Amino acid sequence: MSLLLDKRELKKAARELTLAKLNDVLETLQSVLAERQSELDAINEIERLAREKGFTMEQLGYKQVQEVVASTPASVSSDDKKPVKPKFKTLNKDSQYFYVENGKLQLLRTHTMKKGLQDRGIDVVPAAKVDKKFAKDIERLLTEATEQAVANFNQKVAIWNAWAAANGGEILQSR
């Protein structure tokens, strides 16, 4: 069961639910939670036994997701692959596209989104053709997108500089 359902589907499902169906849903969710808890208990027991015997979880072929996620962006990969050299791309107001969804102006982040939006009946327009009532939102959206682009660039620069320091490459400046 996907937890990321469309709002429309959730509203439709909410209208169809009766008290009996709600009880069934709650029982199902409780059983799923009980299963997950038993899985966690089993994993904790395996970890405890492995530590008692002197093994690490990695030696047994088990990697914890938290460790993988935490170490990947901060460190350079173990096989010292050269990361892609980051390039900062400025956002030009005239080349950006916008769309209105749920009564709010949104910035088109990637052009791969454009087809999906158009299939849903949402018009995607350049900055020059944005409705006048949304014109004041254009600068705010571009400012937010620029801030996000700078943060992403700086993160990539940090990864690049860590690799460059170890391998004698060009050190880049953050923005």
Rank of each mutant, 00 (worst) to 15 (best):
S95A: 14
Y99A: 04
D123H: 10
G116F: 10
V124T: 04
P126R: 02
E101T: 07
Y99H: 08
Q106H: 12
V125M: 04
L107H: 01
V100N: 02
D119W: 11
Q96G: 10
K114A: 08
Q106F: 12
V124I: 11
I122S: 00
Q96N: 14
S95N: 15
H111G: 07
Y99P: 09
L108P: 03
K104T: 04
L107W: 05
L105Q: 02
K114T: 04
M113A: 08
T110Y: 14
L105M: 05
R109N: 13
Y97R: 13
P126C: 03
P126W: 01
D119C: 08
M113L: 12
L117T: 00
D123V: 00
K115W: 11
N102C: 10
Y97L: 14
V100H: 05
K115R: 12
Y97W: 15
Y99R: 08
D119K: 09
Q106T: 06
K104R: 15
P126K: 01
M113Y: 10
R109I: 14
Q118H: 05
T112R: 15
T110I: 13
V125G: 00
L117C: 03
Y99K: 06
Q96K: 15
M113N: 10
L105P: 01
F98S: 03
D123T: 00
G103F: 08
G121C: 02
N102W: 10
D119N: 13
L117F: 05
D119H: 12
N102T: 07
G121K: 00
L105Y: 06
L108N: 03
L107K: 01
Q118C: 03
I122Q: 00
K104A: 10
L108R: 01
V100S: 04
V100T: 05
H111D: 15
S95E: 15
F98L: 11
F98M: 10
G103H: 04
T110S: 14
L108S: 02
L105C: 05
V100K: 08
D123I: 02
D123S: 09
M113T: 06
I122Y: 04
K115L: 06
Q118K: 10
Y99N: 01
Y99W: 11
L117Q: 00
Q118G: 02
M113K: 03
V125Y: 09
Y97T: 08
K104H: 11
D119T: 07
K104Y: 11
R109L: 14
V124W: 04
Q106R: 14
E101V: 04
K114V: 08
L108C: 06
G121N: 05
Q106M: 12
G116T: 08
Y97M: 13
R109Q: 12
K104F: 11
K104E: 10
Y99S: 06
V124M: 09
K115M: 09
Y97E: 13
R109Y: 12
V124P: 00
L108F: 06
F98D: 03
L105K: 01
G103S: 06
G116K: 09
S95G: 12
P126T: 01
N102L: 14
K115F: 10
T110N: 13
V125H: 01
T110L: 14
V100R: 00
S95Y: 14
F98P: 03
D123Y: 08
L105I: 07
V100C: 07
